[in-house]
């Protein structure tokens, strides 16, 4: 059953890191929203700040974090105002959980897999060990891991299995939203397809929402209901998946889509010249302008976000 209520709304989220050369403006005023039981994919290349966005939403700030501001509305409540303890108890893993990048390598090698997945349940739901294990069994069923794997160690599992375990660990507290950071980048084709089947089923059967962060445009379409394209710390386009993959608006999105090689390659894929700007020395004006084929005089100014027909794009061409 789909309820089109707004689950998450992010306004002007900012996260800078301190570095020897100056502040790294990884997340620079990000705005988007997500309805419940929908999946949004944050598309971007390496260095655009998308992993930092995940950390910013879950308040997993590293030691060198600098400016951190903005508003994150979860079910109408601004969770940025919560204290550390409130956030830890109520939000992190309780409402929003995460499958981090290379999650399969993030499993503790000396603890059995079942125990690891049980841990968030014990901490957040307050169940005892037996109750947690039965929850783990249920989660393993959802993600397609056989029961007898509960007592195994991570090194006994293949990469695909470990990734499924990581997803189970994110699921066990029945969150409303799961953030996935490059869930399949290190996996083979068939394993990848299997994982996405799992995610699709979870979305349908459990009504969970997803934020999928990836640079892989092709696989992103497997899960996406909405697409947000990130470039140099900013969101440059937001659109629903159907209209995005048929016809993207922002010049960067167009180039990204054109660079994907196709199985039945009739036309040559294109590549984008130049490199993304460093997040420390950001250019003035539109950050994509020096690589943009449609650049014109107005682009020396930072473009506003233009909303039309349920799609948002940050580009002067649409004003």
């Amino acid at each position: 059953m789909t309820q089109n209520t707004e689950l998450l709304r992010i306004e002007e989220l900012v996260l800078y890191f301190n570095s020897l050369q100056g502040p790294v403006q990884a997340v620079d005023g990000v705005n988007f929203s997500l309805d419940s039981n929908r999946a949004v994919v944050i598309l971007g290349e390496s260095g655009c700040g998308k992993s930092s966005l995940a950390k910013a939403i879950l308040r997993l700030l590293p030691r060198n974090a600098g400016t951190y501001s903005g508003r994150i509305y979860l079910d109408g409540q601004d969770v940025m105002l919560f204290t550390e303890e409130e956030f830890r108890q109520n939000i992190r893993w309780a409402s929003i959980s995460m499958v981090p990048q290379a999650a399969m390598n993030a499993l503790n090698p000396v603890i059995r897999v079942g125990e690891q997945v049980a841990e968030p349940a014990i901490v957040h739901l307050g169940v005892d060990k037996a109750g947690a294990i039965s929850l783990v069994r249920k989660m393993f069923q959802h993600v397609g891991v056989p029961d007898d794997f509960i007592s195994r160690y991570p090194f006994e599992l293949s990469g695909g299995m470990r990734q499924r375990v990581a997803i189970a660990m994110a699921l066990v507290t029945s969150p409303n939203l799961i953030i996935l950071d490059e869930p399949t980048s290190a996996l083979d084709v068939l394993t990848q397809a299997n994982i996405f089947n799992v995610l699709k089923r979870l979305k349908k059967e459990l009504g969970i929402s997803f934020i999928l962060i990836t640079h892989d445009i092709a696989t992103s379409s497997e899960l996406a209901d909405d697409v947000a394209v990130m470039y140099a710390g900013q969101i440059v386009e937001v659109s629903d998946a159907h209209r995005f993959f048929d016809g993207p608006q922002h010049p960067y999105s167009k180039k990204l889509l054109a660079s994907v090689p196709r199985l039945h390659g009739d036309s040559e894929p294109e590549f984008i010249t130049g490199r993304p700007p460093s997040l420390i020395n950001l250019p003035k004006g539109c950050r994509f302008s020096d690589r943009c084929p449609s650049r014109f005089e107005k682009c020396v100014e930072d473009p506003p976000v233009i909303e039309a027909d349920g799609r948002k794009v940050k580009c002067w061409l649409y004003s």
């Binding site: 084709v189 699709k200 379409s221």
Partner: peptide, 18 residues
């Protein structure tokens, strides 16, 4: 070949047979 994805929004509605 089935498992290889192409950017197509309809992918989100179908399961891959693998």
């Amino acid at each position: 070949l089935t498992g290889t994805s192409e950017p197509d929004a309809k992918n989100a509605d179908t399961y891959k047979e693998i």
